[in-house]
């Protein structure tokens, strides 16, 4: 069967690949949005911490023989601890300054993290294979579904929806949203806002590391793997606007799918299509699809 002169099976497999990339965009832009909401910092280091998650998964297997499933929880935890240290040591001291210093500081941290790992592992890819339970593929009749990719999409959706639920439907989330609105007032009600800020940053970067572990078997692991991704995620954030959690998830997934289709129809543009969409959205809805004009 063919659609617009392209075989359906090729389209479906690109659609799935797009969904996989879209899942990473969704988790990463979600983390960026949560962090920006409370800290007013655009976390450039998000890409580097995503990479760190993947490298930790590799290190766990290589040095300690710890398998994928353990690292899927251990790596985000380690990165969250690192994030907490970063927040307490550095970010905490610059909240009062212009936003641009937050971006520059996290850019510096990105270069440091990447530089350290580069001096150990170089820039070539480190091999990492999917766990045995998820290797292989399922034949659905109309297409062959690689199990691991299906797992990535499923796991990302669960994490994204879970995050949305916690933030929008629980008491903890209510504190968080109130803190985003007016931190001083929330503090006056006896909520420990600085602690909440620290933990939020830890949680946001843990999301990035979780995506990194998920990505480890499907993307070449290298110290530079987060660099290009974070710039695309910035574009995703501009397109979606950082106002809504659900908005970041939908935008991330949608752009991944569009990117996948671009690979089928016009592969030359697949690396730029997200940026083109960003430009178009800026012309018609400067605040982003889900953003509110201040």
């Amino acid at each position: 069967m063919e659609i617009f002169g392209r075989p359906l099976s090729a389209m479906l497999s690109q659609l799935l690949l797009g969904l996989v990339n879209g899942s990473f965009y969704a988790i990463l832009s979600l983390g960026l949005a949560v962090i920006f909401g409370l800290l007013n910092v655009i976390n450039f280091a998000h890409g580097a911490l995503f990479m760190l998650g993947a490298v930790l998964a590799w290190m766990g297997l290589e040095y300690l023989g710890v398998n994928y499933w353990v690292m899927l929880f251990a790596a985000p935890l380690i990165v969250a601890l690192l994030g907490i240290v970063i927040e307490r040591l550095f970010l905490k001291r610059i909240y009062k300054l212009d936003h641009l210093y937050g971006l520059l500081l996290t850019l510096g941290l990105t270069l440091v993290i990447e530089g350290v790992l580069r001096s150990f592992y170089g820039v070539s890819g480190l091999p990492y294979s999917a766990p045995e339970a998820l290797s292989g593929a399922t034949d659905l009749g109309f297409m062959v579904l690689p199990n691991y990719r299906a797992w990535v999409v499923l796991a990302s959706l669960v994490v994204c929806v879970g995050t949305w639920y916690v933030i929008e439907r629980t008491k903890l989330g209510a504190y968080l949203r109130a803190g985003t609105e007016n931190p001083r007032l929330v503090e006056a009600f006896g909520v420990n806002v600085p602690l909440m800020v620290t933990l939020t940053y830890g949680f946001g970067v843990a999301l990035a590391a979780f995506a990194g572990v998920l990505a480890a078997p499907v993307i070449q692991i290298s110290p530079l793997m987060g660099q290009n991704l974070i710039i695309v995620v910035f574009a995703v954030v501009v397109i979606g606007g950082m106002g809504s959690i659900l908005g970041s998830i939908l935008t991330g997934l949608g752009l991944g799918i569009i990117e996948g289709f671009t690979k089928v129809f016009y592969p030359e543009a697949s690396s730029t299509v997200v940026f083109v969409i960003m430009a178009i959205v800026l012309l018609f809805r400067p605040a982003g699809l889900f953003g509110k004009e201040k």
Partner: peptide, 28 residues
């Protein structure tokens, strides 16, 4: 034309994204 539609941190992200687009253009 695109970037000054947003301010502050968004301006930085938009210019970064546009420059990345230009990088891929130059690559090809």
């Amino acid at each position: 034309l695109f970037a000054i539609r947003r301010q502050g941190i968004y301006f930085s992200m938009i210019t970064l994204a546009l420059a990345q687009m230009f990088f891929f253009f130059c690559l090809q």
